[in-house]
């Protein structure tokens, strides 16, 4: 008999998956199943937190263009 596990299927880029794996590596409490290099299943209750953490990570890694950049072009 097969097993059915409740969760959230997350489809993303490989780079994003790498970050999710890194976030999960601390406590192993996000990922239920690592399916392939673009797909994961995570816990539904953890999704909002994962989104927030992901955005935090990205904020640190990305150089965002300044808002006033094209102001006086």
């Amino acid at each position: 008999m097969p097993k059915a596990v409740k969760g959230v299927l997350v489809e993303c880029d490989e780079s994003i998956r790498a970050i999710i794996l890194k976030i999960d590596a601390v406590n192993h409490d996000f990922i239920i199943e690592d399916l392939d290099d673009r797909t994961l299943v995570v816990k539904e209750t953890k999704l909002p937190e994962l989104k927030r953490r992901l955005e935090e990570e990205l904020r640190d890694t990305q150089d965002e263009p300044k808002d006033s950049g094209s102001e006086r072009d």
Partner: peptide, 25 residues
């Protein structure tokens, strides 16, 4: 840019006894 991942709520099916069973379901 903000949609780095596409979440879909649902169920993962695994641990099938045979390829035939998997395929049918």
């Amino acid at each position: 840019e903000g949609e780095r991942m596409k979440p879909t709520v649902g169920y993962l099916f695994k641990d099938f006894a045979s390829g035939q069973e998997y395929e049918g379901i």
